[in-house]
């Protein structure tokens, strides 16, 4: 039997970690100098492609197989990555306003996935539906450790994607802070002219950074689709992308502090819904609880934004001719 605190930890983690991996993607993009408001659209597109794949695979396979689950995570990363190339193309090649480009990606993403989900359901599967229903994800409970009070909850009913996210996050941290590529990427966001002078390719580095952010957002979107919705539908666009953005702004564009922010959002959310349940409040009150992560975000931003230092060349197109 799980008590309330355990539930808060379990649900909080499964919400925080996808948010965190998406925030890392945002950090990659923004540290390289490309403003990325497109996270919301990227995660939605990733979830759409991944959800479609899992849906198709599940129809041809043994329902107990967990293969569609892992394949869909991979495909979601690929989908987010490809869609992010559009953002990179607009910002880097076409020198569009990066904020506008981000919003374009979000609006177009929501429109395309909403339309395609319905159209594919009608033409291919012959069903009038606006969603792809997914199989239920496995949950892992580590024997032994999970019995420890409170701390054990961190090892109880883990989604497999949580482990994948932690592994990827460690790798992403290593690349950003400990390799020559990471150094160059961070330099592109602060002083692209210097990178250019040292023989680096600013456009290429930024392009790769945006693609990484797309892949990580796609993964996050697929995780949300599994953990929160158990389907792909347009309700994937709940503003999680913007929460992730708030997360890394709050984390001052550094990976570890951003993890803290994402954990706060996650636990605020799960604690809120636990409280509604515990006090037996009517369903309408869940609307008030839903605002918790957003309120927390806004308050944190109010208190912390003043001391924040965004990457210096953030949002500026790098023009060689102006050096």
């Amino acid at each position: 039997m799980l008590n309330a605190i355990d539930t808060i930890i379990i649900d909080g983690l499964s919400f925080s970690l996808p948010l965190f991996i998406m925030a890392i993607g945002g950090i990659y993009s923004e540290r390289s100098g490309v403003t990325n408001l497109a996270l919301e659209g990227l995660q939605g597109m990733g979830a759409f492609v991944g959800g479609l794949t899992a849906y198709v695979m599940a129809q041809h396979m043994n329902p107990d197989s967990q293969l569609p689950y892992y394949v869909s995570l991979l495909v979601a990363m690929a989908g987010g990555c490809v869609y992010a190339m559009l953002h990179a193309l607009l910002c880097i090649r076409f020198r569009a306003n990066q904020v506008i480009s981000g919003v374009v990606i979000n609006v177009l993403g929501a429109a395309l996935t909403g339309f395609l989900t319905k159209a594919i359901n009608r033409t291919v599967f012959g069903a009038a539906s606006d969603r792809f229903v997914l199989s239920v994800s496995d949950r892992i409970t580590v024997p032994g450790i999970s019995k420890i009070p409170i701390l054990g909850a961190f090892f109880t009913k883990i989604y497999p994607f949580e482990i994948i996210i932690i592994v990827i996050a460690v790798i992403a941290w290593y690349f950003l802070y400990r390799t020559r590529f990471g150094l160059r990427l961070r330099a592109c966001g602060d002083n692209p002219a210097a990178v250019d002078a040292a023989g680096g390719d600013v456009a290429k580095t930024r392009f790769i950074a945006v693609m990484v952010s797309g892949a990580l957002s796609g993964l996050a979107g697929m995780c949300f689709a599994y953990s929160i919705l158990a389907n792909f539908s347009s309700s994937i666009y709940m503003g999680y992308g913007y929460l992730a953005i708030a997360g890394y702004i709050f984390g001052n564009w550094e990976i570890l502090p951003s993890l803290g922010a994402c954990l706060i959002f996650g636990f605020a959310r799960s604690a809120g819904s636990e409280i509604v349940l515990a006090l037996g409040m009517p369903a309408a009150y869940s609307d008030l609880v839903m605002t918790l992560p957003y309120v927390v975000t806004l308050l944190l931003l109010v208190f912390l934004s003043r001391h924040n230092q965004a990457p210096r060349a953030l949002g500026q197109t790098y023009d060689k001719a102006q050096r």
């Binding site: 904020v99 503003g239 913007y242 702004i249 309408a284 957003y294 806004l298 109010v302 934004s305 003043r306």
Partner: peptide, 26 residues
């Protein structure tokens, strides 16, 4: 407070949506 206007307006969008939904439903 130097709060990015895009993020703050999105947050206020969601807060308004849910709070007003709560008030309508009650």
């Amino acid at each position: 407070f130097n709060v990015n206007e895009v993020v703050s307006s999105i947050m206020i969008n969601y807060i308004a949506e849910y709070v007003i939904s709560f008030m309508i439903q009650t």
